[in-house]
Design a protein around this nucleic acid. Structure first.
Length: 561
RNA sequence: GGUCCCGUAGCUCAAGGGAUAGAGCAUCUGCCUUCUAAGCAGAGGGUUGUAGGUUCGAAUCCUACCGGGAUCGCCA
């Protein structure tokens, strides 16, 4: 019927290759509106689809699927495209240049990054890469929590190190201050800049000075750690800047008040948990329950200062005012309670014109040869991000952090990620890329003129790639653009990692077939043209591996050692 | 007690509402011993936590339970 909706109709590659190259559910979806049984409708649709010159067969199967088999001649064109588009293959314009703000890491600037920050950092960065690759105008942002009590603690800790640097014996670091050695250089820098001047001042005077310097030093430290992972942000947004000069938090509250979403009241104590300290108190509240939150949220603390949440509201309002209609926050799982209220905030402050997706990264558990690595902040035995990167390399860390859905917990084993076997996906994928490079190196001894690769390979007689394993590999390569778009749309970079593992598997499989059947080897010394066609396949595979690894931020190696 | 996340093969995990739920490891059976080092081919293994519901069709969406984790005004 002319007015039937096409919503829900898909055309996609079936999981099972026996169901053809593409399949559509159109007949099943349209059965009801057309008043025909699905298979009958399929009978009428299939011949219409088969008219397309790329379609070799349109068959009806199962409950009413129409399975399409493409002409064999279609597949070589995929390789030609990969070779001609080079680094552009798989790039998409679905983002249409929309400005997307990805906020990730945002670790408190009170010390070096520890391993717990690692997953969110890598996830956010890869997601940003993925969105950039699909035509979004991405801004990578770090929210610097430089306004809370923890940065005053940082300043006091640094002040102690300053006194130490001036020769004083400070003894044990008192409970409640940061004990780490990383503050010693800050103390020394303070001593160099201020000599003994700070000793003469009351805390109210030295604290802002020390805080500013300590904060900058800590941010330097964090940026170094991130750089070791290949991460750099475009914007470091200061929480403190929200109230310096002009009070944006007050503006935000005023906005919401105008909508009747702010009131003064008291919250019920948590149920099921006895809290002796609880006292009933009137406070300024945001009516987040209007948006599905289970409790309204306080904006002002008992000492009169804004809550962290109030600042975060103003921060998201600021993002929207900077032109971001799409925002993504990457949080650790311990911030899950924050999600509802932030979504409520964005909905209220933007009148529903902006989207906020919050990606929660679950915990990473560290292992060494199957044994859990014990960590304790108090004992100072927690593992820093830098230690992990130094031990196994940035590429391995990144790949492993992405070889899992963000909302599932992840086990990271130091021994496993350096193992050279199929069981280690990082190695398996990188080895495929290195193997492709080795083919190109080796061809030089047989057909020196084929070494150059690239464009002239696109002119090879690609129809000669007609072994099933070769075709399977070409089809996998053909899927790449769709995988990229789906991963971007779902904000799920792990799909790229899994795809690369499958692609590497196909490539290794084809390679191994050359063991039993020498005529299937990439370099076939009695047939130059066949070798040329196969090099086109090898180079295409290598390109797609490199593109995918590029999105994940993992180096593609020419050889492994 | 409330809220959020998770529950899929012995283990670790995949799977845009699609067809017979897939990989790796482990197990079992063959093969390979340098031809392209970091092996190969094949097999077995499942009531997708339980019970309902929505749908032509559910691991996927909804409801209620069970189990594990996170979190619960003034920390960030």
């Amino acid at each position: 019927p002319a007015d039937a909706s096409i919503e829900g109709i898909t055309l996609e590659a079936p999981k099972d290759a026996a169901h053809g190259d593409l399949a559509t559910n159109a007949a099943m979806v349209l059965a009801k509106p057309s008043g025909l049984p699905p298979r009958d409708l399929a009978q009428r649709l299939a011949p219409l689809i088969a008219v397309d010159s790329n379609v070799a067969a349109a068959e009806i199967a199962g409950p009413g699927f129409i399975n399409l088999t493409l002409e064999r001649a279609f597949w070589p064109r995929v390789l030609r495209m990969v070779l001609e588009q080079a680094g552009e293959y798989g790039r998409s314009t679905i983002g249409q240049g929309r400005a997307v703000n990805v906020e990730y890491v945002s670790a408190n600037p009170t010390g070096p990054m520890h391993v717990g920050h690692c997953r969110g950092a890598v996830f956010g960065d890869a997601l940003a890469n993925l969105l950039a690759f699909t035509g979004h105008a991405v801004t990578r942002e770090y929210y610097v929590n430089d306004a809370g009590a923890q940065v005053d603690v940082l300043a006091r800790s640094a002040y102690l190190r300053y006194r130490e640097a001036l020769g004083e014996d400070i003894g044990e670091i008192p409970e409640g201050l940061y004990p780490g050695d990383y503050l010693k250089p800050v103390g020394e820098a303070l001593a160099e800049t201020y000599r003994r001047d700070l000793l003469e001042m009351p805390e109210s005077e030295w604290l802002p000075l020390v805080r500013g310097i300590a904060l900058n030093k800590m941010l330097d430290l964090i940026q170094d750690d991130l750089a070791a992972l290949g991460i750099s942000h475009d914007v470091f947004f200061s929480e403190r800047s929200l109230t310096e000069g002009h009070d944006q938090i007050a503006d935000t509250i005023a906005d919401l008040k105008a909508q009747g979403l702010i009131y003064t009241g008291s919250l019920p104590p948590p149920k099921g948990k006895v809290d002796e300290e609880w006292e009933d108190r009137e406070q300024l509240l945001f009516r987040s329950t209007e948006f599905g939150d289970d409790m309204d949220r306080p904006l002002v603390k008992s000492d009169g200062a804004y809550t962290y949440f109030a600042a975060d509201m103003a921060y998201h309002r600021d993002k929207f005012r900077r032109g971001f209609n799409d925002m993504i926050d990457v949080f650790g799982a311990d911030h899950s309670g924050h999600v509802r209220r932030m979504k409520a905030t964005v909905a209220a402050l933007t009148g529903g014109r902006a989207t906020l997706d919050v990606k929660l990264c679950q915990l990473v558990r560290l292992f060494r040869g199957g044994e859990p690595v014990k960590m304790s902040k108090r004992a100072g035995t927690f593992v820093t991000l830098r230690e992990v990167v130094d031990e196994v390399g940035a590429g391995s860390v990144r790949f492993m952090m992405l070889y899992r859905k963000n909302d599932a917990p992840l086990d990271f084993d130091f021994a496993k990620v350096t193992e050279q076997s199929r069981d280690n996906p990082v190695f398996y994928v990188q080895y495929a890329h290195a193997r492709a490079s080795s083919v190109l190196r080796n061809v030089e001894g047989v057909f020196p003129d084929l070494r150059s690769g690239g464009r002239n390979l696109a002119e090879a007689d690609l129809d000669r790639l007609n072994d099933d394993s070769e075709l399977a590999l070409i089809k996998r390569i053909a899927h790449f653009p769709r995988i990229v778009e789906a991963a971007a749309a779902a904000h799920e970079p792990h799909r790229i990692a899994f795809y690369l593992y499958d692609l590497a598997g196909d490539f290794h499989g084809l390679w191994n077939r050359g063991k039993d059947s020498p005529q299937l080897r990439f370099i076939y010394d009695s047939d130059r043209e066949l070798t040329r066609a196969r090099l086109a396949l090898v180079v295409s595979t290598q390109r797609v591996l490199a593109l995918g690894l590029g999105i994940l931020g993992v180096d593609a190696m020419q050889e492994l050692h």
